[in-house]
Design a protein around this nucleic acid. Sequence first.
DNA 1: TTGTACGCGTTATCAG
DNA 2: CTGATAACGCGTACAA
Lengths: 343, 343
Amino acid sequence: MTSDPARAGRTRGATAAPTLHDVAARADVSLMTASRALSGSPKVREEKVKRVVAAAADLGYRRNENARSLRPGQRSGLIGVVITNASNPYYAELQLGAEQVLAGDGMRMLVGNTAEDLDRERRLVADFVGWQVDGLIVVPTGADSSHLAALAGLNIPLVLAARTVDELAVDTVLIDDLGGTRSAVHGLLEQGHTRIAFLGYGMSVPTSERRLRGFEEAHTEAGVPVDQHLVFSGSPAPDAAMRAAAELLQVPRPPSAVFCANNRNTVALMHALKNADIEHRRPQFRVVAFDNFDTADLMPIHLAVVDHDPREMGRTAARLLVERLHGERGAARTVELPTHFLS
Amino acid sequence: MTSDPARAGRTRGATAAPTLHDVAARADVSLMTASRALSGSPKVREEKVKRVVAAAADLGYRRNENARSLRPGQRSGLIGVVITNASNPYYAELQLGAEQVLAGDGMRMLVGNTAEDLDRERRLVADFVGWQVDGLIVVPTGADSSHLAALAGLNIPLVLAARTVDELAVDTVLIDDLGGTRSAVHGLLEQGHTRIAFLGYGMSVPTSERRLRGFEEAHTEAGVPVDQHLVFSGSPAPDAAMRAAAELLQVPRPPSAVFCANNRNTVALMHALKNADIEHRRPQFRVVAFDNFDTADLMPIHLAVVDHDPREMGRTAARLLVERLHGERGAARTVELPTHFLS
DNA sequence: TTGTACGCGTTATCAG
DNA sequence: CTGATAACGCGTACAA
């Protein structure tokens, strides 16, 4: 006699997903024995384990993770990953690195893109919380962080990646923007360049600040003043970098070198340089770029690069998160990943 | 008197996530009134709605989507997206396009990378089914498809993207590989090139076949024989394209043009051409490449490109899936997205 | 308009 | 070693 008359009488579509009931019935075992057999509990007779496993395979049974994580204290095994823009290879790599570590720990990833929109970030975080994520990795879009601060109250660990939010005391993974920039610019100054332009449009405010500070510190150390006419940075207007790159070559006393603070700026500059035929007109012109990319060594002018590893950033973020999930209780940690100068 | 003594007596951590119970208690309403108020049911007194909404906001209440979708007939609103490699901008864009459409329909995305590993694909699909996904978008890695075929039996709609699996009669989104390649190669033949190389390493078998067929058909139409010594394609050994690109310039009667069947091959060829200083040594040398990329117009030699839109592919896949979820029952559809030739 | 009872699929607990 | 039962948070069906 089945102990579940309700289910016995059901007339669901022939293709309803099989449940543990079905497996247990087929293996002629009780529900709990089936449950234990499938979750590898040691105290089940081996013969029954076999029967259950066979039945599950026959039926194509998949444990309903929803029901499982409904029980209190159960982890969902879900991690929310909120990035700003997956079409930027940088963040795509970050996502991939995070997945590498999380998958190794048996966790799955919910992914959302904010497109740098604070409102979408709020909605995504709220949704993910609704899905009972065990933790979140977020590339924060902006300064407002009340929705992120609220996570602490829910006991949901949070790791910030790529950017900080000052008010938030949480684990954070950054690149060594300042150091990487400083030593790259230091190199240019050592080579005797005294008029170096800074091209840094369309970046988040904190990142922009850190890279600009590195630029300035290198100058200070070398005793070379920064000419503010050579500092191009600001809002993310899509073609600001393009215009600035062209303009930069036309200023009264033009620079002999340029530091590009990220990928997009580098590409913009490359176009401008190609148009200006710099390669032949001013062979001494030097460019150093933050962020490496696939075709960097195919550019019309030689590019020295401040390289770093976004995938490692994702991995590190995931590792910090996993440590919290494993009970780590210490103060918030900030990891600065090193950069590598490729001349 | 509360109707839930069990909960009244609990001593969970002070920060356990608030449930509908908590909200109802705080608003001094019954559970169901709270539920209805929050899901916008019309039949609730407005004053109580306000109280409930306020209580929910105070508590930071988030509906537990797990519990919600546990009930039969309820959709989870979760879509599984299985791609081969998020670090390839192509698939990252695909993911982004899918998310665009799905988010617009109020659905969330579980994302997994297979790294072209059939086993990981199987595990991911199984996991996602366990999470009660409403549907799946998959870039299939290989020929074996039993795990995908099984989805039909579970009533879980599947859309394939970027690649087909012959045995599977499911909605599929592809690029017009054949047509795009044929017309591009046609152009080269019209310009009088009669010895055109095909460089196509490291691609999936079906895609590779389609592009090679386009290459051959263009030749047939023009009455020009294909010299098999100029066809370089095969396994995805990481540096095969590199070696072939170098070799290709050294064959007895070298080609006057090259068709690169994808991004990676193009970059490999560009390196070889730069080393060989083709730009100056053989200014008539022509290259046509499948897949556009950011810096295509900065390459050492002019590049004509067969462009297409991976994001649109993601959007289309998601649209097909959403239609199925909305009840579309027709036969499996295959959409071939057009390519655009940029000379 | 509001409230009660029940079940979704799973596992912890406790009794056999 | 095995099984019955309750409970997780929510929404449907029905009763008040």
